[in-house]
Amino acid sequence: MMNGFNWYKYASPATFYTLAGRLIPWFYGAAAVLCAAGLYIAFFLAPTDFQQSEAYRIIFIHVPAAWMSMFIYIVMAAWAAIGLAFNTRLSFMMASALAPTGAMLTFVSLWTGALWGKPTWGAWWVWDARLTSELILFFLYLGFMALQAAIDDPRRADRAGALIALVGVVNVPIIYFSVKWWNTLHQGASISMTKAPSMAAIMLEGMLVMALAAWMYAIAAALSRVRSIILERERNSQWVAQMMEAEA
């Protein structure tokens, strides 16, 4: 098997707690730098769109947030699957720690979508396929969090949440396909931001940098949330007591 490096060591909450504590500032730092760079590209380097004028610049937040919201759901489901398969507590904690960040990014993408829609189509909300899927994704995140919040026993909360995340991830493609189908059939407005003809390479770069920033932020936020989950769950354990003593 893996000789030399003990993976299980890092799967223990006590070790992970310290490791995460050391990593978090770096991820926050990376997020800040990338965000600054991305915003610089967005506001100074990217050209003004001749159709939509300056308002389009919100896609530098909207699109990365939407990308990340979907990506985080998949990562969350992957942690859930690992947790169910190998019964590792830390994986379940990662899944529950990612959910609020994912939900927040989903909300950001919905909100910026509305802000962008108003000047572009004159309506805050259009039942466009992507926005609608994003809204449903938001519901899926809420369901996951509500289920975990309703269960007192942490073990059951972990596993029940993991199962619903897996059920959700299996359904996401079906939901996305059905919403798209529904949208084309009803000839609703279709936003094709990423396919806009005027889409310059620099715009794509800006969005990628912003997505990376969101990624780093999500990792940092999830790690610090995992740390508080670990503390809460292990508050009666020896290593937490020792750590508290050392800090006092």
């Binding site: 449903i136 519901f139 509500a146 289920l147 059920v167 959700g168 079906i174 939901i175």
Partner: peptide, 19 residues
Amino acid sequence: LVSLLVLPLYIPVLIFGAG
């Protein structure tokens, strides 16, 4: 809670059924 969990998953059925 059931409604929060289940209704989003019902959406494809609704779309194809009503469609």
